[in-house]
């Protein structure tokens, strides 16, 4: 079994982008950021401690922001390299660098259990509407499932899947 800190070191750009995702959404909503760690050798590999969001939507966007940012950025970086490498076996060294970066970023898209706890605390125990609570429940469940899946490398498979499937999807769409 490979220790988590080694995976975090090898895929450190993904950790940084994940925390940047939280950071950017906090800045966007003008929330105070009490403490931030973009990368460290430890558990968790990064964190953003921020003031309470003003509503449930902000809570969700701060928690899930990295999911969208990491997935989109990972796909955009890996796709142009994945086509020559995977489809045509004609990759250059730069293509392999792009694939490593894209997969690293995409595999850290999943919100952490800390994000789930914060979302749960803020929405379920806060003054959110029934609808917000109704949406939050399965989302938090999904985050915990994702965390459980990461024991079985689900996050890595997700990263590779984004790098491989996004180009296939685009090609199928436009061909």
């Amino acid at each position: 079994m490979i220790p988590g800190f080694l995976i975090a070191i090898v895929t450190f750009p993904g950790v940084i982008v994940h925390e940047l995702g939280h950071f950017i959404f906090c800045r966007l909503f003008k929330l105070p950021i009490l403490d931030v760690c973009f990368f460290r050798v430890g558990t968790p590999a990064g964190y953003v401690i921020h003031g309470a969001p003003k509503n449930a939507a902000q809570h969700m966007l701060i928690s899930f922001g990295p999911f969208f940012v990491n997935t989109l950025l990972g796909a955009l970086i890996a796709t142009p390299a994945a086509i020559p490498v995977i489809q045509f076996s004609a990759g250059k060294p730069l293509d392999y660098l792009l694939i490593w970066l894209g997969v690293s970023i995409a595999m850290h898209a999943f919100p952490s259990t800390g994000d789930a706890a914060s979302l749960w605390q803020g929405v379920w125990h806060g003054e959110a509407s029934f609808f917000a609570k109704f949406i939050t429940l399965p989302l938090v469940g999904l985050i915990y499932l994702g965390a459980l899946g990461s024991v079985f490398w689900l996050d890595l498979f997700y990263g590779i899947g984004v790098a491989m499937l996004f180009p296939k999807l685009l090609v199928a769409l436009f061909a």
């Binding site: 955009l76 970086i77 180009p167």
Partner: peptide, 29 residues
């Protein structure tokens, strides 16, 4: 600095993007 580096790589990727994608599409066609 790291953000600038990732931004640079993203620009590089986006420059390659249409060429790679058009090749993938051409192969499928």
């Amino acid at each position: 600095v790291v953000t600038a580096f990732i931004g640079l790589v993203l620009v590089l990727s986006l420059v390659q993007f249409p060429l790679s994608l058009s090749a993938g599409i051409a192969f499928e066609r």
